[in-house]
Amino acid sequence: MGHRALVAYRQPDGTFTLRYAHWGENLSAAIGPTSPLGGSAPHSGTDDVATDLGVERRNGYEPPITTRVDPRPLTVGATAADVVDAVDVSYESLVVVSRTFEATAYLVCWLDPMGVGSEMVLVEPDDDPETLRGWYVETKSRLSGAVADGTLTPESARATLRRALSVQGTLYSPDDASFLRDG
């Protein structure tokens, strides 16, 4: 639960352009008509850390991005189903941006009690997303502990977490992208 966000921009033809934001915390509030890419990334003063420290650049080094959302598209022409399919273990939230640049954030919650990687749901929180994040961390930790000491099976832990999450917000399963088709 944190900052890596998949950002889906709805296009006039109904498809989506997908982009990545590494520091995506509170990104939905920062996206708007005058800041479609979430505004400027705060200047770190150490954008080129390797150079500052006089050490050799490593394989994989890339120049800094100056907007919060990386302007380079990951995918263009994505369907609603493609958007949900693209939410893999590397993302912690999905931010969907309307054509008028209103953004809605969905938390990516993994139901596997031992970590991330198997069954996932997208959650649109009823109330404060931060409260939900905190609740999810504690609840998942308790369920994970119960699985580790044999009190719960992994299946019942997953079912319990899913049921408990559904009380805190609206759940969307990755096999049903219909919630992205309107608007």
Partner: peptide, 8 residues
């Protein structure tokens, strides 16, 4: 992470 962390 800026908040308390769990298994994820």
């Amino acid at each position: 992470k800026r908040r308390r962390v769990g298994p994820d």
